[in-house]
Design a protein around this nucleic acid. Sequence first.
DNA 1: TTCTGCTACCTTGCAATGCAAAGTATAGAA
DNA 2: TTCTATACTTTGCATTGCAAGGTAGCAGAA
Lengths: 114, 114
Amino acid sequence: MDRIPSQMLKGILEGAILMIMAQGETYGYGLHETLADLGFGDIPEGTIYPLLLKLQKNGQIVGVRHPSATGPDRKYYHLTPLGEDAVTAFQGQWQQLAGAMTALITHGGDHDED
Amino acid sequence: MDRIPSQMLKGILEGAILMIMAQGETYGYGLHETLADLGFGDIPEGTIYPLLLKLQKNGQIVGVRHPSATGPDRKYYHLTPLGEDAVTAFQGQWQQLAGAMTALITHGGDHDED
DNA sequence: TTCTGCTACCTTGCAATGCAAAGTATAGAA
DNA sequence: TTCTATACTTTGCATTGCAAGGTAGCAGAA
């Protein structure tokens, strides 16, 4: 599967990760797989971890280390109320963007000429 | 209408503008209005003009000045074959992104854990 | 004429963010 | 041991939206 261009993911990945967390606690390395399953492509760790640190610093998520049965400890993150607000805001913004794009795509064929 | 966050527009505006041009020749100042009509919000000129110069430099669009009946000259741009290829590529990328987001939104709470 | 406002284009420099690259560490298999 | 997969972290760069400021043409009002 082709990767979505990085410039196109800017500002969207952050919201996508918050939405994934809204559906259940997760950890950095696991996000990599979840994002790929959803169709976002192979998002590198150099993208995911700094983003998680930023979200935590912003008070939108909280992380706790837990041991894993199969390897090193995992740092599980879950949303704070602030993070839940961010999810709501992001969903609205996404819908506005998707709506504008739909208008642009749909409109193809029936534009007026002067 | 709220503005879509600038980070969320990165890489999308460029494609959107190419798509608008695929539907008919246009000029910088007019794009401002077209984008607003489509729902992209109030995209400032400091965004639009540098982007047009970049697209022209990349050989994806070509611009020609024409006098306007109501004010200063306008610089009308139209797609080159390279620009048409870019539109096709962008549409595929957008559909992948939109598909991934739809999967994320639809899928509410049913991803697997290990 | 001069002033005001709309149209129309251009440039500089900054802020945000995805990511390549490199490093560290744990656990199990070869 | 060595290798592989898992798991987290950091540094520095490239890209791009945009605020801010500038230039200029045209029309109507004063």
